[in-house]
Design a protein around this nucleic acid. Structure first.
Lengths: 152, 152
DNA sequence: TTCTATTGCTCAGTATACTGATTATCAGTA
DNA sequence: TACTGATAATCAGTATACTGAGCAATAGAA
């Protein structure tokens, strides 16, 4: 195991870095400045309007301390609002703004293109198999990270 | 593409996070505090004694600004030395110390165990196929990240 | 109802990654 | 040799991720 090029951890790190770079480049071409992390968070809020930060973190498998900054930046860009909950004064309720909906609509093609570029080394059958194995692998280690995915 | 669980970028991010957590946990059981990034750098220096930072960065696909901090911390722990090159006064020559060699030897089993745990959701055939597809995918997007891998 | 445990959020500190800039040095050319 | 472009390393600033701690509020048990 001397050679890091055959180590899954090392390859995953490199793929993750390429994926982020590809995503940002494609989204920039659509005229937006948004990270993959911000995009996932904003999308999750759109699907679950009125969600609180902790539940959002579980939905997309983010650490709870990370989500604070992500939401901060999305709010600062005017893409979502953060208001205190009326039923639980600890919680902050999130909503996507008009501007946020517009951004999501307009970067949608860029996001799909980014996923496509990321898998450009594989043919259709390989892509499908890769995604299957990737999902299976992630599912099996979900509980081992500090921020496991928690379905609602 | 509303659902981030089918997006490769999102799954890769989650796997990367789990991989880091697994690595650190296993290495901690061996009595060491070392990140996967530091381990890869130290291993690369061991294989290529006297390498300079820029070449090291290319070998393991790290950004050149990232490598500065990584080498800093490894040097601070006493695992490697950084001396000015005699032939190129811009460059810093890296060498693994005795303590560094000892650390690499002692955490070796933990590293292998971490890779095994990371793939625990797959059987042997699937693991092999997953690694093949992962390597192929990474190879095809290598040039799209700021820090592409550059073989010596 | 009161006490305890838990939960939602935030903060301080550390470690990757990256953008973009600077400094010192080197290499190749006119 | 003087100049130009490239390179090695670093720095400032931003954005994830995480550890560990803290505060306010809630929920469940005695």
């Amino acid at each position: 195991m001397d050679s890091y090029d055959v180590m899954p951890g090392h390859l995953v790190r490199r793929l993750q870095q390429a994926a982020v770079a590809i995503f940002q480049a494609e989204v920039a071409r659509a005229g937006y400045d948004m990270t993959p992390v911000q995009y996932a968070a904003l999308t999750a809020v759109r699907v679950n309007p009125g969600i609180d930060q902790a539940t959002l973190a579980g939905l997309i498998a983010y650490d709870r301390t990370t989500i604070t900054g992500v939401v901060d930046r999305l709010a600062q860009k005017g893409f979502l609002t953060r208001k205190p909950s009326k039923t639980d004064r600890r919680a902050r309720i999130l909503q996507v703004t008009e501007s946020g909906h517009k951004a999501l609509r307009e970067i949608q093609p860029a996001v799909e293109q980014a996923q496509h570029i990321m898998l450009r080394g594989l043919d259709d059958a390989e892509s499908q198999e890769f995604m299957r194995l990737l999902a299976k692998t992630v599912g099996a280690v979900n509980e081992l990270s500090r921020a496991p995915l928690k379905a609602i």
